[in-house]
């Protein structure tokens, strides 16, 4: 049994405080959903957990089985058992998936010879077309294919904890189901603990959440069971102190446009792919 403990985590980017004291604990096999409007700092939480450059931690702690995660470089966090499925996976021209995973296996002291077999097996489990496996990482992949690619790597690397940063964005219904199912299976097969950051309840249809946290203005303002996600779907985040601009982001672009008058407002604002003011130019 492993434990990812986040206590009073505060962080800023570009001189602006974005995380204002985040506290939560994820244990092996658990799924925690973090739901909040656009601009609430959800993505920042995922970046700070993985150690993406451009953020400054100003307070609090993150430990994995008692070990200080914040003192580690990104690759050490990964080796310690943390995985980030990115909202916008970076294209890495000229670098194959196999080579990247082989380098990760080398760092972990795992047998590199296992990589091709594991990749094929994982591709099969989520319906990732084998012809994409030979392409450079994320290059010329659609949004949905990139998310399958992230899920595939999660399956091969077998982390203890996965942070999913809007895994559902850019995914069609079939791909979402395949990815969410695979991650749900990992919680049982390898005891994966999941921190799923999302706008929408959709992801949680397949990936059953044990705890749902409402995230507004850089902190968790409420936590509850899976029923909380249903409530948010109906009432939005306004009741939790989110401002109008943030509330608009709750609109599900995949919802029936005639069922909900807000649906006609169209697409939600897309977050800055590099996390706002902390982005690296």
């Amino acid at each position: 049994m492993s434990e990812l403990v986040i206590e009073g985590l505060r962080a800023e980017a570009g001189g602006r405080e974005i995380l204002r004291g985040v506290t939560l604990t994820v244990r092996s096999g658990e799924v925690h959903a973090v739901m909040g409007p656009n601009g609430s700092g959800k993505s920042t939480l995922s970046h700070v957990l993985m150690g993406r450059p451009g953020y400054t931690v100003t307070g609090g702690s993150v430990t994995l089985d008692g070990v200080d995660v914040l003192a580690m470089a990104a690759w050490e966090r990964a080796q310690a058992g943390l995985f980030l499925a990115m909202q916008y996976p970076t294209e890495v021209p000229g670098v194959s998936l196999q080579d990247a995973l082989a380098a990760a296996f080398t760092a972990a002291g795992r047998d590199v010879a296992e990589v091709p077999g594991l990749v094929l097996a994982e591709a099969g489990r989520i319906g990732f077309d084998e012809r994409f496996l030979t392409r450079p990482l994320n290059v010329d992949l659609s949004g949905g294919e990139k998310k399958r690619n992230e899920t595939l790597q999660l399956g091969v690397l077998r982390p203890k904890f996965a942070v999913l940063d809007e895994l559902d964005s850019g995914l069609d219904v079939d791909a979402l189901r395949a990815c969410a199912r695979r991650i749900e299976q990992a919680t049982a097969e390898t005891g994966l603990g999941v921190l799923a950051i999302t706008h929408y309840r959709r992801l949680l249809d397949e990936l059953k959440s044990d705890v749902v946290h409402v995230f507004v203005k850089g902190e968790i303002v409420a936590s509850g069971g899976a029923e909380l996600a249903d409530e948010l779907e109906d009432t939005g985040y306004a009741g939790y102190g989110a401002e109008e601009a943030e509330v608009e982001g709750v609109v599900d672009p995949f919802a029936d446009p005639f069922a909900d008058p807000l649906g006609s407002t169209g697409r939600p604002e897309i977050e800055d792919p590099f996390g706002g003011p902390g982005s690296i130019g």
């Binding site: 993985m50 150690g51 993406r52 450059p53 470089a73 990104a74 690759w75 966090r77 990964a78 080796q79 995985f83 980030l84 990115m86 996976p89 970076t90 294209e91 890495v92 670098v95 990247a100 995973l101 380098a103 990760a104 080398t106 760092a107 972990a108 990482l137 790597q153 690397l157 590099f274 690296i280």
Partner: peptide, 16 residues
């Protein structure tokens, strides 16, 4: 830096 971070976030050592 984004490319480097992506690989390192998979557990790849900085030199690799």
């Amino acid at each position: 830096e984004e490319q480097r971070f992506y690989l390192e976030s998979r557990g790849v050592m900085p030199a690799d």
